[in-house]
C-alpha cells in the first residue's frame, strides 16, 4: 500500500472533528502547537510507509496539486 487514501475513511466524522477541536479547547497557542506536532509525529509513525507519508506531506502543502515543486524548507544536503 503506497497510495495515500484521500477518500472518506473516518466513521462518524462529526464526532471525530469535535474530539479534535476539544483537544485544543482552552489551550494556549504554544500548547496547541505542541499538541499538533506530537499528533503529526504519532500519526506519521503509525502510517510508517515513506511513500504514503511523502504523498501526505505533499497533499498538506498543496491540496490542489498545482505547484510542481515540493514543499519548501527541505535541507538540500
Amino acid at each position: 500500500m503506497t497510495t495515500l487514501n484521500t477518500a472518506p475513511n473516518i466513521p462518524q466524522p462529526d464526532d471525530f472533528y469535535a474530539e479534535l477541536l476539544a483537544l485544543h479547547e482552552g489551550r494556549s497557542k504554544a500548547e496547541s502547537d505542541a499538541i499538533n506536532a506530537r499528533l503529526v509525529l504519532i500519526l506519521a509513525n503509525h502510517i510508517g510507509d515513506r511513500q504514503v507519508l511523502r504523498n501526505a506531506l505533499k497533499a498538506a502543502a498543496d491540496p490542489g496539486g498545482r505547484r510542481s515543486a515540493g514543499p519548501e524548507g527541505h535541507a538540500r544536503r
Binding site: 502547537d33 505542541a34 506530537r38 503529526v40 509525529l41
Partner: peptide, 8 residues
C-alpha cells in the same frame, strides 16, 4: 516545536 515534540 517539532524538536520539542520529539523529545517529549
Amino acid at each position: 516545536i517539532f524538536r520539542d515534540a520529539v523529545l517529549d
